[in-house]
Design a protein around this nucleic acid. Structure first.
Lengths: 241, 241
DNA sequence: GTCTATACATAGATAGAC
DNA sequence: GTCTATCTATGTATAGAC
């Protein structure tokens, strides 16, 4: 069983968005179940298909409401109404609004880490590595767009370790890109006279725009595949020999 | 007197950030005074050097607090304490928290429109136009970084016309860039086979990162001039013949 | 496990003294 | 013009019935 899951993770498909979506379906399916296990000391309701379903609904509803008005403005009354669970029932799934935030963040972070860390290690050239990483990032942020938006917009209100973890995530993405570019320079695949950390930073900005401006790109009918391609071309054109 | 002001606006200096900063000092100085005039039906305190000073302090304090915790979470009590004015006094400068938001947005929008609209019209080539526009945007967003950040992060909570105006601002910047590129293509200065609206969109994303990630760029000691240069080079490299 | 009713804190805004 | 005291609404969280 373990081998099967492991195979599946390594088998993330990056050819196009549709194949990607299929290949990570299995991975995302049991994220909430694992979330349940990791937080069993906080959750007063015992694990069951029904309670997992409820937790999933709470998380998605909270993200959706927060993306409209902000997490701090979302009231427990509203979360209760929209998620069709009473306030009393909600508090059986988390001990406080702050803890719900942790659970939401854990939910997204776990999913993203799995995908990104495995996305580009099997590429041969630096060019391929870069393209695969860009695709992986855009594809996973498309699938989890609500969470990505949520996490980005709420970061500044986070405190302590939650804030640090989110910033680490931001810097990790950036340093992964930087590493790819620097290795490419070392292997004589890219120009030597580029400022790698600035390029990495700008790359990250472009990747983020995809989920920060959903309304714009979806209105214009831009597909994840097109956007990934254009991102790659702009960057590659600048760094290639 | 009118001619003098007009000259000054046209005289926005884009050579480097320091000269830019000096050249728009005069423009920004009396923005709050004009703001006072435009909202005199809302403000119960009569115009004076003292009251202009108070209004300015209210605006900047509100922006500062909001950038830490969000406008909706900022309480009038806190704004009162930090700005050293009682709650009663605050409400003499604006009739409601919602109206204060309008005033803040008006403050930033007025300043930015002046600078951006005049920034690139005197350039000869499309290449120069693009570079000047990028510089103007990065320089003004450096000077007004707190407002830019505020406006970006609070947009989603805006309602009605305030929301529309902010989105218009976003799309205006983008279409200005698009126009520059398209004119360049027509004049045989740029490649014909590029997706102008996607490039414009990505350009905007890069420009925005400058004020959205202040902590990162200032920590790394990246100057506005360096960032503008790198932005331009990445884009130009992609669109040039 | 889930509900309703309620405790207690804090929000935006106003009234009236000075 | 600015202050303090206070009104009413709404927030998070809990208690106790079922």
């Amino acid at each position: 069983m373990k081998a099967e899951k492991s195979d599946n993770i390594h088998g993330i498909e990056l050819e196009n968005f549709n194949s990607f979506k299929k290949s990570i379906k299995f991975i995302l399916a049991d994220i909430v179940s694992k979330l349940y296990d990791d937080n069993r000391q906080l959750i007063r309701v015992k694990k069951s298909p029904q309670s997992i379903e409820n937790l999933k609904r709470i998380i998605h509803t909270a993200i959706r409401i927060s993306n409209k008005k902000g997490y701090s403005v979302m009231s427990m009354r509203e979360l209760s109404t929209v998620s069709s669970l009473s306030i009393g029932a909600l508090y059986a799934y988390f001990p406080s609004k702050d803890e719900l935030l942790h659970i939401i963040q854990q939910y997204g972070r776990t999913s993203v880490e799995k995908v990104l860390s495995e996305s580009f290690i099997h590429s041969s050239s630096s060019k391929d590595k870069l393209y695969n990483f860009i695709r992986a990032h855009i594809f996973i942020s498309e699938v989890l767009k609500d969470w990505f938006y949520f996490s980005y917009m709420e970061t500044r209100y986070f405190t302590g370790s939650e804030y640090n973890k989110t910033i680490e995530g931001e810097l990790l993405t950036e340093s992964l890109i930087k590493d790819i570019i620097e290795k490419g320079i070392k292997n004589n695949e890219f120009r030597r006279d580029i400022q790698t950390s600035l390029i990495a930073s700008i790359s990250k900005a472009i990747l983020q725009d995809w989920y920060l401006k959903r309304w714009k790109y979806s209105k214009r009918g831009v597909t994840p595949d097109e956007y990934a391609r254009e991102c790659f071309l702009i960057l590659y054109n600048y760094i290639k020999l």
